[in-house]
Design a binder for these strands. Structure first.
Lengths: 125, 125
DNA sequence: GCTTATAGTACCTAAAATGATACTGTGAAA
DNA sequence: TTTCACAGTATCATTTTAGGTACTATAAGC
């Protein structure tokens, strides 16, 4: 997904829309937020199991960005084997209506069986 | 923004969230949709003027994708100089609650003066 | 005759974002 | 003793996305 990173956000008033999208627009951020909204607390591999196609590299990256943006909190237990819990911060929870709107729209308009979206132009194999 | 394009969307139920994000996650799609929701009809250069930093190349690309995804309708008038109108389709209008949620969240949580977002890691110049 | 506006296109490049694969150290379970 | 799970890293390559600049045709306005 395109990270939106204009130096100047001078496309007001609509640009907060872009700004919001930039924050949750990582390839897996939406689902991660969704699951954390559902489950309160999840460990790294618990999230991973819910996202069958994510690589640990990507999941780490997405979680770190969500953490940097203040949406999730990462709690490391000094145990062996390692134990790390992820949960939403208050700021992260404020995204609930956004995620809910996306979910509602998706449920109503996305056909999961048709696994390829129109604009995903793929050359005829 | 990362286009989401897994071959199999088997991360249900949360993955419609990703699916939805993939559709509106182009760098300028959010703002374009926002403005079209506000104004009903806009011509190419009218949109362009509302997005000070967009290049015609990018704007065309975003509009074409929105069109391919069935969100906007492109109406060409066979005139000279050219006249092309863009407006939302019914499908595009169904995104209204999503855009509204993004806008509301952004208005509440994004500081437009602080032009750089936390996760936009930029090396100290 | 020159400039402007319209709605783009073409070509090239740079910068992100994503992906594949292999690997780490430790303790417990088999 | 070998294997497993945990929570990641490291390294590499590929794919996408975005941006820059220049250019098109035509008619109207000056």
């Amino acid at each position: 997904m395109p990270r939106i990173r204009h130096k100047s956000l001078d496309c007001s008033p609509g640009c907060v829309v872009e700004g919001a999208l930039a924050l949750i627009g990582g390839k897996w951020k939406g689902v991660v937020l969704y699951h954390l909204l559902q489950e309160e607390v999840l460990r790294f591999n618990e999230i991973r199991r819910r996202l069958p196609n994510v690589t640990p590299r990507m999941l780490t990256a997405q979680l770190r960005e969500l953490e940097a943006d203040g949406f999730v909190e990462r709690k490391v237990y000094p145990e062996v084997p390692p134990k790390v819990e992820y949960r939403l911060t208050r700021h992260g929870m404020s995204l609930a209506p956004v995620i809910a709107a996306l979910k509602a729209w998706g449920d109503a308009h996305i056909d999961l069986e048709a696994r390829v979206k129109p604009s995903a132009k793929k050359k005829a194999a």
